[in-house]
Design a protein around this nucleic acid. Structure first.
Lengths: 220, 220, 220, 220
DNA sequence: GATGAATGAGTCTTCATTCAT
DNA sequence: GATGAATGAAGACTCATTCAT
């Protein structure tokens, strides 16, 4: 079918144009989403903001949801990249250090377009792509779970599933809460310290509060 | 239209009728909200479900948002009542007991119309009445903050503001996460145990993980 | 619920208003359908032509199809009334007279808004209400079939089902063809004569062309 | 774009390619028309189904209507070929035989892509090419008219124009009705017999029902 | 001639809200 | 106060058609 060398400038030009259109759409969507919220972000407005005809929008995205889902995926992808890289790095570090890093990276990840994050987080159920976000947590959960498994003897909690669920949810929730309601906390090192302490103390267990046999963990 | 001498029973009847109409509207709104979600819950549908004309709906509520806000207020009120009563009860109890109660009551509160809670939680930002919800947390925060203040010497955390924020947010978040993603956890006593432990260990502090000068607290 | 005598002018006024709106819509639809055809008859255009808001249109008709279906039903109803009355009248008349009347009434029925009839006939499959029209033919078929049954010995065709199908379809088709392509024929008595003859000769049968055993029918 | 000396084979190749493209387009159009109906048969879909770019489609056909008109013409052409050949064959046969053949060939013609036929028949007025179809009937009419003229003395009808119109319309209509509503009839020889009888009896005339000598029918 | 990205007028439809009765 | 018919701005989406490459 192709009769000429694949370097055909024609096709490339065309592909580049497509890509530019899609990019413009995603960017415009993110902007409008932040500015107007999900409901008021009409596809016509988005197309206009992207400098693209409404027809083109629908050429690339079959529905408003699909468009927002793409923005979501892009955003989640960026967050995951940050988280993944960091967690791999501390896979073998001791608990306090690992916990600190988990908190730090969670905050870092939540700093990527925080307003967009907020809108997307609110609208997740509607976009019907909850899985994308769950994927982030699922991945974090898996990594944390594996980490705890490897250090079971340092852990003062019996049910590792529940423990990882609580640890991950907790850090995520604290970060989220801070982003949404106390943005100033994000830049205070104290905040990282405390959230990390929260996790460490919980996972470390304690004779008095332990859910199981008292563990004699001297350190961390 | 027909004018008769105003008698007090008449006025009462009228007032009662008003109240019944408002009640019917709030109840219908809650039902439709749960069944159809915020977007598809049209005011016409709500009025019909309430057995009230659309005109009357607008007599009592100036807008859809006002209507949903009223439902939200009612719901939040019910939750607050539960929380307030319980927290007053454990104001002087020792930390582990108080923490357990906090968790327990949070879960109990989230069991009030959980589906409605979910929809409202998702739509909060849109209703523009976040303050209602913040009020719940603000109240809990105040109570917890006072509690910690009173037992400062048992607490292994320096910054009581931050500590109460984290404690309250954390319990709220865990409960919320469980409601939304792991409903089965809500009925397992283990869950309460663990979340309570999380809070107690954090607030109790720990020499090794302390964020500040090591406190010499035997246990908590 | 109703507290005042049913003569309430309020309700009547309201009902009349509704009825007027529906009527205006049906009439406008018919007009636009004739003028622009089905595809170009947009609901907005129809509403405008009816002097009614688009919202009102959708208050009464849930879709464009429903609107056209209502027009169709109204039209078919008018035709059926004409046909039914006439056929009842000749139920006991001899074949030639009955046939003539069938043809005459078919033409008369097709004279009711013939342009609308044409558009509707063309769009039937799309409106998904073919049944309405089939009902007309089904009714005619039943009547004709009963008629033939009653005069079986005058009929020179064996299969009465097939015979009635052909007779009815034929008259309908001739009328239809004339309406669509030779409107001038409709006013010529010759046309009625010929179509009636067509039917009479067919049903009367003939030794030479008979499909079955030669019937010894002198004439009819 | 690449220019090479024009050689005849090249031109042929090009012409052949054009022809192949047009064929592919017509075939795809027919298929999509049958599958999706006229309205949902978008030019983009058709181009894709034909393996041709939308640009090329518009190179060969200036509009959607032109495309459908071409399909119609092709279809009508195929039908006409069948009809023409057959009618020429029976030009000198006696009436009963000729009538039978007319009916037979009409059915045969309607068996060519009946689903496409149906869609096209429904959409005719829209394509604005009714003349194509009228041409089929016009041709049949001419042939039948000539036939009747030649056998005037066997015909019991005065007005040959009207007679041929009725005969042709009738057969066409019966066939059409059968195709659309009673497909099972098409394969029953009885059906051909009856329709042929219908025509023969009509054209054969009859003393009692004759259109000529005044009949003593009351009137109506 | 071919390609396919881009166009945008126009479609159906919804729904919060108003107002005459 | 109650009613519910009416409103119309606005939304998501389609598709015949154009034109730069």
């Amino acid at each position: 079918m192709v009769r000429r060398p694949a370097t055909s400038p024609r096709k490339n030009a065309s592909q580049e144009r497509s890509r530019a259109t899609v990019d413009a759409l995603l960017t415009a969507t993110a902007r409008i989403l932040v500015r107007d919220g999900y409901d008021r972000a009409s596809t016509n407005k988005i197309a206009e903001a992207a400098g693209v005809s409404i027809g083109s929008l629908y050429q690339y995205f079959p529905s408003k949801e699909a468009l927002v889902a793409a923005v979501l995926e892009r955003h989640v992808g960026a967050m995951m990249e940050v988280v993944r890289a960091s967690l791999a790095r501390v896979a073998t570090s001791p608990l306090p250090e690992a916990a600190r890093e988990l908190v730090r990276v969670m905050i870092e990840a939540h700093r990527i377009e925080p307003k967009l994050h907020r809108v997307l987080a609110e609208q997740l159920p509607r976009v019907g792509r909850m899985d994308h976000v769950e994927r982030v947590e699922a991945e974090a959960l898996t990594l944390v779970r594996a980490y705890l498994e490897a250090r079971r003897d340092e852990i003062g909690v019996d049910d590792l599933d529940l423990a990882s669920f609580l640890a991950v949810s907790c850090v995520e929730a604290m970060t989220h809460a801070a982003v949404l309601r106390r943005p100033e906390l994000l830049s205070e090192p104290r905040f990282v310290d405390e959230v990390a302490a929260l996790v460490v103390r919980y996972l470390g267990g304690d004779a008095a509060t332990s859910t199981a046999r008292p563990a004699m963990l001297g350190a961390e």
